[in-house]
Amino acid sequence: MSNDRFSMCLASDLFRVKKLKSVFVALILMFLILFLTFAVCWVGSNLVSKVEVSETPSIEGETAPTITQEEKDGLLAALDSVINDSLMGSGAICLMEFLVMIITCIFVGKDFSNGTMRILVSRGANRVHLFISKWLTMAILVVAYSLFALLVSGILYAFKNDGSFTGYDFGILMRCFSLQLLCNLASMTISLMIAFLCRSSGSALGVSIGLYIILSVALSIISTVVSLSGGNQDWMMFMPMQQMNVAASAGSYSTDQLCAVIIMPIVYIAIAFAVGVSTFVKRDIK
């Protein structure tokens, strides 16, 4: 009976998420960012590759722009890096994390503010089931978004490499994808916890975005200080913000760093889950 009740809650949550406009807006945004970043860089690198190379550095006043081979290679490498980053994660997938955070806050906050949560609890729904149901709904959304990003990235990646998509490329893509998925689940759980604590879309969004900004600034300051003092930055892998754009640099991680980026999201999920559930079970619903 109680499993039935849980599946009912999940079915209802999935139904409402499907009707949420922001879910589709986020999807379109992700596609646009992926596609436009790729398109601009791809066109840019095609244009650069067609530029004639001169033996000497360009002189002021010359009509046709010319660059040296060294400059051309540097430019092409930079554009290639941007394309790779956008496809591997630092572009759309990181943005996805931010978008999922917003959707989570809106979805859960709305359920509190419009009284859906009240109705469900008053009809005997178990509060732990409700929390898990919301988490699963958002997790499904994260997986769906990630799969979408993976598909679009894969197609663009293959297009960029003139149709060739090797097993090695696939391996790298999957590693980045899995790690980023895990981190996205962690940050989604943190957002879910915040939404359950705030119980309204507006305040949950405010707190989440505020936290995001504060953590970003804190991380930048810490990394600058550590870098200037020549200290070891490995421990920073344990920080949530560092985890958020893991896909961009996952290809170069050492084994220890890989362990950190796998274990820490699980720890974050467990903590946020425990705090969220225990608070929700104890507090009255308005």
């Binding site: 409402r16 009707k19 949420l20 406009k21 709305k110 419009n114 009284g115 859906t116 009240r118 109705i119 008053s122």
Partner: peptide, 10 residues
């Protein structure tokens, strides 16, 4: 209870 519990976007 209180105000009607409805999802306004539906």
């Amino acid at each position: 209870i209180d105000s009607p519990a409805l999802a306004l976007h539906l």
